[in-house]
Design a binder for these strands. Structure first.
Lengths: 258, 258
DNA sequence: ACGCAACGTTGATGCAGATCAATGTGTCGC
DNA sequence: GCGACACATTGATCTGCATCAACGTTGCGT
């Protein structure tokens, strides 16, 4: 953890009950989060004992590359971006995290990337050594973490294909398609997407400049693929054309994590 | 497993003893491979029982994207490339594997990428369900796999930075630097690198064309950064300049897996 | 209401790297 | 030795996206 330390709220309500996202209860959130799989009651109560919940403002830095990796997180709400930087300031965003995504799963001494809140976000924080102790107690959790890690690796490989071999239009279509799939998983309307990140974030995620992102959006609008009410809300009007552009074939399934 | 099935040699020598790489003994190789960490004797004997060793020719396909993921592998010798393809044939190589590298760690139903031998290669093959049964027996192995998986994820993120934000010269310098670090780990001469892969493989790994790879090598030669005896053997004459180009800062440590 | 700052869009121009094309260079089979 | 093939290099030209520059839009503090 570096820079501005956000408010840390110890978990006070250990009772697992469904709660709305805007009043998240860490324990029940953990239980409900699909990414965690079905946790057993004793696992939940133990997780509950080690978790703290925190909320960070948009733009807040959670940690930067090279910081000691002292905690893992689950995103409860909001959007987090992960990024790597070159000495001269060029930046590559390696992923956006949303509700139910894991952060800091890399079991290494130091974080290999920085993490920053795109929008105001709420997270569960697990001190590293205590989560690892918990893993000793519940070895089956380890298998699930390995599975999550595998999914992230698959996503990373998809992203390499995108960055190395796709055109600007294909990149942007892939990005929209990915966001759409995630929205569908969360049972929100997959046709109507929020874009909490700004154009420079999208550009740095896709290996493009903000101007190219903007121009490509305009091109999509003119072709009837998408429409905008506000710059941060896009409607996908022709999902098939977008999927085609993205290089998605019928048989393909999207990697679950972004 | 798809296409040309290579010779599969059941392991006949269960005695763990040091052996030369050109006459690999799967069990002792597993024990020696640093990536596995220190395996305990009973783990080795059990691994020994489920492993089969196989040798594939250069250019042979191990599996393609979408094949059922029915096995894991450890590379004992040679070089394997992993790749993803777009419908129109554009290709992105997501990694090269060398001795001691794991292959197929993704615990998913189907392989998310294809794998092909760059040079003649020898591998240990672990049927998926039997390795998973073994993991139940030795939960500590799972932690090590998670650690390996984390390293691969970190490498993938490095590669995203490379593909999205580096110039051709920086990409090629990063590639050489990475190979050099790997050679140093293996205690071979890190100044003198074999390039078993051809230019089109390097190009598809770095998101470049073969022409750009070739021109950049020429530029490096003219600047005194590298020299060639054969096209597949490069000598790094100015490792500092290469590291500088690659964007490697003093404090950085290379991610262990490529 | 105003000014200012942050973000997004649009236009003009430049260039890194792709593409197209030809020419080395090494290796293998005969 | 010699052709044939695969791979690498070099050159000429093209182009997709970056860069440079201006303007539009929104929201916020005073």
């Amino acid at each position: 953890m570096s820079t501005p330390t956000p408010k840390i709220t110890p978990l006070v309500d250990p009772v697992a009950r469904p709660g709305p996202v805007n009043n998240p209860c860490a324990a029940c959130a953990i239980r409900d989060l699909s990414v965690c799989g079905a946790l057993k009651p004793d696992e939940i109560s133990r997780l509950n004992a080690i978790v703290v919940q925190k909320t960070v403002n948009a733009g807040a830095t959670l940690f930067i590359e090279g910081d000691p990796a002292d905690a893992h997180y689950i995103v409860l709400d909001g959007c987090i971006k992960l990024y790597k930087m070159l000495p001269d300031g060029r930046r590559q965003i390696t992923g956006f995290l949303f509700r139910a995504d894991f952060l800091g799963l890399a079991f290494r001494q130091r974080y290999a990337y920085g993490a920053e809140a795109v929008s105001t976000a709420t997270l569960c924080r697990f001190p590293r050594e205590r989560l690892e102790a918990l893993l000793d107690e519940f070895p089956e959790m380890e298998r699930r973490l390995l599975s999550i890690s595998s999914s992230e690796l698959a996503s990373a490989q998809d992203q390499m294909l995108l960055l190395g071999r796709k055109t600007a239009a294909e990149k942007l279509a892939s990005f929209l398609w990915l966001l759409s799939k995630r929205a569908a998983l969360k049972e929100t309307d997959w046709r109507r997407l929020d874009l909490p990140m700004m154009r420079s974030d999208i550009g740095d995620y896709l290996g493009l400049t903000i101007e190219t992102v903007s121009r490509t959006f305009t091109q999509f609008k003119k072709s009837g693929l998408v429409s905008f009410t506000r710059p941060d809300a896009v409607q996908l009007d022709d999902i098939d054309a977008l999927a085609e552009l993205a290089g998605v074939e019928e048989s393909w399934q999207p990697s679950t994590a972004m």
